[in-house]
Design a binder for these strands. Sequence first.
DNA 1: GCAGTCGTAACAGTGAAGGTTGCAACAGCC
DNA 2: GGCTGTTGCAACCTTCACTGTTACGACTGC
Lengths: 144, 144
Amino acid sequence: MSANSRLTIAAHALAWIGLYQRQGHEVATSEQIATSVNTNPVVIRRLLGELRRAGLVESRRGVGAGWSLARELESMTLLDVYEAVEPGPLFAMHRTTPDQGCVVGHGIQPAMQGIYEGIEETVRHELARVTLENVLQDVLEAPR
Amino acid sequence: MSANSRLTIAAHALAWIGLYQRQGHEVATSEQIATSVNTNPVVIRRLLGELRRAGLVESRRGVGAGWSLARELESMTLLDVYEAVEPGPLFAMHRTTPDQGCVVGHGIQPAMQGIYEGIEETVRHELARVTLENVLQDVLEAPR
DNA sequence: GCAGTCGTAACAGTGAAGGTTGCAACAGCC
DNA sequence: GGCTGTTGCAACCTTCACTGTTACGACTGC
């Protein structure tokens, strides 16, 4: 499966901003976050833009500009982040519609849809159990 | 997310072969399955090749060649199919390693890895609960 | 007005998956 | 032995989403 790193990068950025703010700083720049993630600042700005639309972060412009959290890390779950950055479903249907004249071709999509929805619901439930505060604590506990 | 239809197509093919065999036929051809799926026979052969390596189907060559189930649909779960056709994880890490000199860059991967492993385990558990026989029954119950 | 940073468009690079063509290998049948 | 239908598989193109990069306008505090 062509797996996606968007959730990972978003969690990284949020944890970074959260820690930076706890160290007394007002805002973090996309440049700083990009250095930690090891990528281009524009990639970070794009991703944080999606998180801003979801109400998770805020941005300031002008001199002394940058990004700050819109809520406490405790009140943000991985599900919030997931919904902000991953629009599509975990499993996809056929790219071309199957033969509707065939019994299987006709019934397979509703059948799989029902199964997939149940699984996605379970995944959402798991993601909702983890807050970004949990993530930051796990990060800080990593052995060096 | 760039979602994947491989699991869907594999389930479609297996349900088709199972139903066809119940109608008294010995083997199904990739051509027939491709018609129902609405794609190219080579795509089906590639996918069924992976299922054969996993011991789910068998193939015959020569005249009267084609594909047949290696086991009953009752004893095949979506997890078996998933493991046969989806090698990678559901969520990926960074594509370039993050800055190991940064606390967050250093700890984020083990932190997310732990979380993701738990979620994948849950998904596997859900997939293992559904047999291909369940899928076929759902398919046949679809309103027309 | 200057400087620093965001906001966003435009485009190239990358990688996975699907689609297509072609052909050798195989096995039953005449 | 030759014919036929099908798998097995390699090679290549297309498509698509995402990432990476450059460029530049917009904004804001000094």
